[in-house]
Design a protein around this nucleic acid. Structure first.
Lengths: 253, 253
DNA sequence: GTCTATATTCGGATAGAC
DNA sequence: GTCTATCCGAATATAGAC
């Protein structure tokens, strides 16, 4: 993430509007990044053309795939939907499979950075907020990407399939570590049913719920802050941290 | 569900071992049911042969689909995996699509019955337990079926896609109703963050977590009771029902 | 860089022998 | 009831013109 974003982070985890304002993986930025990271597999040499085509290709993919699945989407479908010819498609991608792999790489990159950002906070409560909010906000902004990776992991070559599962594993382990620290802090509550592992699992499930079921959340960007608050409150309650406040304004020392 | 099962239910929701013992959608029973409900689309007339073939077909489908996806599984793959010829396959199924539709129908049937069973209880706390446990236990026993429907809803004809989404909607609405009743009972806790809708969403997410990520749960049948307890405790805590006990033995009056 | 035209493989489904 | 052989359309990917 950008330096300016980190400065905000060093105070407290940002809410959605601030997060989005400094989130770099959007618009042309994002496609420029994809182009740079896949130069070897893309026949186009001019960034300008690559961005334009990649934008079309991914948009069309995200439009068609949720309805019929990636495997059922033919490159002919993609051709008509993007307005590009078959040859045009293959100038921007090396194969159909490559589309899915690029999506996996982008999501992996974003997720790794969310963990990194949360580790800037020494206070586990703030770190947990950073990770939860970051994950929720990023997966709201990039909903089609996260959704695609979850449902189409099967369409990846097996090596990439493992990589995809690992992304989730890293997130849940990080959540578990942070929640574990908070449980030790309170120490008066050691029911087996509120172990860090289970609460972390629940937390991740709630995040995924959001981006996996877009038909349930009509104005995701407007309601995501409230949702994040609810998730955090639920976590606090699960581990007997009733005094903690979910609203980040109230966290200022 | 069988009459004997209902008798148990009228006392209290059963734990996994009892549930499984009276769960009718298993083994040859299940395939006999599928055969009866699809007689018109199956060219075979003898139940004995149908059960044998359907068993092979669904087993093979559930083995291959999680790795490569339903659409990528060709009927030739299915032919070699089942040991049946192409013609043999088409004597038991009318088309590839029909496999997915039959799975959807079975899951819909089971889910409808879980709701029905839970409604046998007048006490919302017991009804909630019945629904949560029933859903968790059934989706453990029939994990491949539930998993398939979730990931392959896209492979269904659009009319059936809607039906598939509706199954989930019915479950979450039922949970929401029950949780809403419990919240009214306690009445001292009306934070916006613990509305019935959100808690019901969380509950369903936790159920799905189990059958959607089999790689995380190695001995599902052995650990499912403890998982159900944790889920129920978390729900109680979310709605300030701290006094409620998750262990069904402790619920006897 | 983008297009059209085409090579080639593979998939679902069926017909008819056993 | 099950098998083999085959039809036909569709899909990925490429070659070469513009």
């Amino acid at each position: 993430m950008s330096v300016s974003a980190q400065k905000i982070h060093s105070l407290q985890p940002p809410l959605f509007t601030d997060f989005k304002a400094s989130f770099p993986y959007q618009g042309d930025n994002l496609y420029a990044l994809i182009f740079e990271r896949n130069r070897d597999k893309i026949r186009l040499s001019k960034e300008k053309f690559a961005i334009k085509n990649l934008q079309k290709i991914f948009s069309a993919t995200f439009q068609m795939t949720p309805k019929i699945g990636f495997q059922a989407m033919s490159l002919r479908d993609l051709s008509t939907e993007t307005g590009l010819s078959m040859g045009g498609l293959y100038s921007s991608i090396s194969s159909k499979e490559a589309i899915a792999i690029m999506i996996k790489d982008v999501v992996a990159l974003v997720c790794a950075e969310l963990v990194e950002d949360s580790r800037e906070f020494d206070d586990p409560l703030q770190a947990l907020q950073s990770l939860m909010r970051g994950y929720l906000y990023a997966s709201t902004i990039m909903q089609p990407w996260f959704y695609f990776l979850y449902f189409e992991t099967k369409s990846l070559p097996s090596a990439d399939q493992e990589g995809s599962l690992k992304i989730e594993l890293i997130q849940v382990k990080e959540l578990e570590t942070l929640i574990g620290k908070l449980i030790k802090d309170t120490d008066h509550c050691d029911d087996a049913c509120h172990k860090a592992e289970f609460v972390a699992t629940m937390a991740l499930s709630l995040i995924q719920e959001r981006y996996l079921k877009p038909w349930k959340y009509r104005n995701p960007e407007e309601t995501i802050d409230a949702y994040a608050d609810k998730c955090l409150q639920l976590i606090y309650r699960a581990i007997c941290l009733d005094e903690a406040q979910p609203c980040h304004q109230k966290l200022e020392k």
